[in-house]
């Protein structure tokens, strides 16, 4: 109390205390309702918005990465399929060519064998004809010769004798 009376600086005036209380309460109520509340709300909203946006961006990034992976997988699969298809086509083509070749060869062989068969048949026919003609000729000639040779009796007998000698009865 002594200090309060000695130093006027540490003696609070009731007037200032009174007005200060009023001023502070007015500030607290008015600012609290019309300044701090909207400001803090707006800031919080903005912060949550930013957070949300960041989260969304992260999610999108993950999605994009997943999509990229998927794309790559699809691409790889497509590539594989293409390679398979090309291989199949090639195989088919090869097979077709070899089949054609085989078939051609068979046909060729068949034609050749047919031809050979025909040739042999014709050759045989020709040979038979020749043989027949030669046979008949020989018979004709032999008939003519025999007719001429055996025109006398003596000669006929010698010949029979000759043949008989040739035939051995055993």
């Amino acid at each position: 109390m002594f200090l309060l009376e000695v130093n006027p600086l540490v003696l609070p005036d009731i007037g200032l205390v009174f007005w200060n209380t009023i001023a502070f309460l007015i500030l607290l109520i008015v600012l609290g309702k019309f300044a701090w509340k909207p400001m803090l709300k707006a800031i919080a909203e903005r912060e949550s918005g930013i957070e949300e946006a960041l989260l969304r961006a992260d999610k999108m990034k993950a999605e994009i990465a997943a999509m990229q992976n998927e794309n790559e997988a699809l691409l790889a699969k497509a590539r594989e399929e293409r390679a398979g298809m090309i291989k199949d086509a090639k195989d088919t083509a090869d097979k077709m060519v070899s089949d054609a070749k085989d078939k051609a060869k068979q046909e060729y062989e068949r034609i050749i064998s047919d031809a050979q068969l025909a040739i042999t048949q014709q050759k045989n026919a020709a040979l038979t004809e020749v043989k027949n003609q030669v046979g008949s000729l020989v018979v004709e000639v032999a008939e003519k010769i025999l007719r001429k040779e055996l025109s006398n009796k003596a000669e006929q007998e010698s010949y029979i004798k000759q043949i008989a000698e040739g035939v051995k009865l055993n």
């Binding site: 005036d13 009731i14 007037g15 200032l16 007005w19 200060n20 001023a23 500030l27 008015v30 600012l31």
Partner: peptide, 20 residues
């Protein structure tokens, strides 16, 4: 009881006004 608008009270009101 002195409830006067002194220099300090007036200045306080100015600050309240500025803040508002």
């Amino acid at each position: 009881w002195d409830f006067s608008i002194t220099k300090n009270v007036a200045s306080l009101f100015v600050s309240v006004l500025i803040l508002l």
